[in-house]
């Protein structure tokens, strides 16, 4: 699983042209993974955040603009190992905006 972490697009004030440029790169990446037959799913997440914390189950709604970093979405890919995912993650479009890709392995339990 590749988890995308970074600032919220809305907070960065991207222009329509810049957003289209981003979109083109995401499409290309999406397309590449699909053609390679490794894509198993994924979602983009909206920027509304609600946190429930502690024994009192304290609920806070957080405006994404207050957060420097937010999980923006994830992709699940099926490949050999960590190194192979790193290779796939090279094409993540938002490194130049300070974005991070966190790679985690989905645990599979043997019976």
């Amino acid at each position: 699983m590749m988890i995308f972490i970074g600032a919220d697009y809305a907070a960065m004030g991207l222009s329509p042209e810049e957003m289209q440029g981003r979109m083109g790169k995401w499409f290309a990446w999406n397309d590449k993974m699909e053609k390679a037959g490794i894509l198993r799913g994924g979602n983009a997440l909206t920027s509304d955040v609600r946190r429930i914390v502690g024994e009192n189950r304290t609920v806070t709604d957080i405006a994404s603009a207050e957060l420097k970093e937010i999980v923006g979405g994830y992709y699940i890919v099926e490949v050999e190992n960590f190194d192979a995912v790193s290779e796939v993650a090279q094409d993540f479009p938002d490194y130049d905006l300070g974005g991070t890709v966190e790679i985690r392995e989905i645990m599979v339990f043997d019976r």
Partner: peptide, 8 residues
Amino acid sequence: KATLSWKN
């Protein structure tokens, strides 16, 4: 919204 929902 487009850039979010179009990613996937």
